[in-house]
Design a binder for these strands. Structure first.
Lengths: 189, 189
DNA sequence: GTCTATAGGGGGATAGAC
DNA sequence: GTCTATCCCCCTATAGAC
């Protein structure tokens, strides 16, 4: 019955994620976060010493989140196509809020980030690609999915279609993203 | 015999383009450009009143550049696959310098840009997509290319593979980009 | 845990001399 | 066309009171 009180630290993470997806990492400030949460600059620094620490925490969140998804998919009765759809859905949601995937956003700012962050992002990407790759491989083995390329290559094609698809949608409209999404699903049948 | 002297204005455009592709629009300053060209801050402002004017000039350059490519392709004896390859080559070159396509870079910063710039970027994207779409349509008609989707959708799939492919390569290495590139070419046969 | 106040630096941009 | 000098703003970050 208890609604867990979202503390400030979680709120900062939530807003930070939104800002990265909407404006980009180098285009928002602690002051922006503070204004949004109606607290002061210094309070944000209390929870995350510096902006890089906030970014790192967000990346850790994503890693945990995908680990959770991995467990859910492993224990689910979904067919391969349904599992792939779980990944696609995450991108479809972004479009509706004019936002882009955090990996794509960070990729643009990549050369401005410290090595520690770069390394962790690399791990996140490998993890996500690995999950998609494995799902594709299993689906092919069971005869549920059909594609010519290696599972790794197919995973790369799908994830790049999605990542740049939401970037494109922000500029040219959601219709283009929808065309991509439908084509992806059709291709695997 | 005369080697045209590259004046400062052209040099600024050259460096500005590099910085956008390497660091992102919101992550470099006029001071960075000035340092690179061994001139002062104010000299850059003389050639481009503000940073947005520089960005707009770069977008105009891209539009002209693609118009030139369109003319070249129209008058060439290249088969459809060869024409598509001209687009792919542009992205392959980016990988080697740890850079990403300017459209992808700008897409990340999109919500921080003034409306005038947004509108022009939209036109640039439509132009490039239109060129690829038309090339695909002609190739299919002549029996040189084979794909199931509409030319527009196929163009979207190819361009998003390339745009996010170079973003990915910057983080996970060029091997992934190469896998994408080869798969794209193979898919069309 | 949040505040006020502030340090220190960098950003975009302009005026006016040369 | 480039310079020096400067303005004003916002940024990241910290110290110390509450």
């Amino acid at each position: 019955m208890s609604i867990r009180t979202t503390d400030t630290k979680e709120e900062i993470l939530r807003i930070g994620k939104q800002f990265i997806q909407y404006y980009g990492y180098n285009a928002f400030s602690y002051a922006d976060i503070a204004r949004e949460l109606k607290i002061k600059n210094a309070a944000v620094h209390y929870h995350f010493r510096g902006k890089e620490d906030l970014l790192m925490a967000l990346i850790e969140n994503y890693i945990q989140n995908y680990q959770l998804l991995a467990q859910q998919l492993e224990g689910s009765k979904l067919k391969a196509a349904g599992k792939i759809n779980k990944f696609i859905e995450r991108y479809t949601g972004l479009c509706d809020s004019d936002s882009i995937c955090i990996i794509g956003s960070i990729a643009s700012d990549y050369n401005t980030l410290p090595e520690s962050v770069k390394a962790r992002i690399s791990e996140l990407i490998e993890m996500v690609l690995g999950m998609v790759e494995q799902t594709l491989a299993e689906g092919k083995k069971k005869g549920e999915l059909h594609f010519e390329e290696s599972p790794r290559t197919r995973a790369l094609l799908i994830m790049t279609n999605l990542a740049a698809g939401v970037q494109l949608a922000r500029i040219s409209g959601k219709a283009d993203y929808e065309a991509i999404r439908k084509a992806l699903i059709k291709q695997l049948k």
